[in-house]
Design a protein around this nucleic acid. Structure first.
Length: 271
DNA sequence: CAACGGACCTGCCTGC
DNA sequence: TGCAGGCAGGTCCGTT
């Protein structure tokens, strides 16, 4: 489900309910996520106030007055804001219940997400520290991509999805951005000019921004914190469109596999 | 060091 | 109808 736009949509959905709120309790029903939820986390979190919330890549950081929570949605994670009394269903792994009588409930069928405790600054957490630039931040441009690509030998699509380079570009938006920049996904990342990298950086930025504007994509089961789906799906130009006509040149969109991930591109537009 | 493949999970869809 | 197989938006980790 979630790439950067979906995580950003999620953050915007849960922020009004958590920011400044006191956590009455954390209820954990399933500790076996990507990493086990730490024993005793319930005790640490109880009574804490949420002082700040931010997204870093696809991670959500919840700053508390004492410590922080580092969360990830994995492939199928999602949060819902609900009244505190709503009964849990399968795959509802934990709830953050506030003293306002509401809760933020985490659901994740595949359990690839995580809920980690961080005693200090979450930006220095091992999972966060090594992350690359934010694609919607000021430092992200063609130059920083080209610099990062120097001396590396891999397909540009895999390069773009490397979170040490730039965060938040997942499988859907990597295909989409490469189409927008007219770059073939299998092209070696070291064989792309500065000018084309600038086009690519712009494409990443506009694609992600547009997706956020539409509330994300709802390919399978993604829903925002209010339960509403995203609508960016309808805007996708290549992802999931193998066999259909390219909206730009009319040739048939193809699917191929790069790094074990489905990749979609237009053989006419992308070089 | 970089690149790659496997691993972690469940659910859904297709085709036999 | 049942079952096997393939596929799915992430990313870490061990091996080459």
């Amino acid at each position: 489900m979630p790439e950067l736009p979906e995580v950003e949509t999620t953050l915007r959905g849960i922020r009004p309910h958590l920011l400044g709120a006191r956590i009455a309790k954390l209820v954990v029903r399933e500790r076996r996520l990507r990493w086990p939820i730490a024993a005793g986390l319930e005790t640490r979190v109880r009574g804490c106030t949420v002082t700040a919330m931010q997204r870093r890549g696809k991670y959500l950081l919840l700053h508390l007055d004492r410590g922080a929570l580092v969360m990830h949605l994995g492939m199928t994670g999602s949060f819902r804001v609900l009244p505190a009394a709503v009964p849990a269903r399968v795959h509802d792994h934990y709830d953050l219940v506030t003293e306002r009588g509401r809760m933020v409930r985490y659901r994740d069928p595949r359990r690839f997400g995580c809920l980690l405790w961080c005693a200090g600054d979450p930006m220095r957490h091992p999972r966060i520290r090594g992350l690359g630039v934010e694609p919607l931040g000021e430092e992200f441009d063609g130059q920083c991509l080209r610099r990062a690509a120097a001396g590396r030998h891999l397909a540009v699509k895999s390069f773009l999805m490397d979170s040490r380079v730039v965060v938040g570009v997942g499988n859907i938006y990597a295909s989409e951005a490469l189409f927008a920049a007219a770059i073939h996904p299998r092209r070696g990342c070291h064989r792309i000019s500065g000018a084309r990298y600038q086009l690519l950086a712009d494409a990443v930025r506009t694609t992600l921004s547009a997706a956020i504007g539409h509330g994300g994509s709802t390919i399978r089961d993604f829903a925002a914190a209010d339960g509403l789906p995203g609508y960016f799906e309808q805007e996708l130009k290549v992802y999931g469109r193998a066999g259909r006509a390219c909206t730009r040149c009319g040739r048939t969109i193809r699917r191929m596999v790069i790094g074990q991930r489905s990749t979609f591109y237009c053989p006419g537009c992308q070089r």
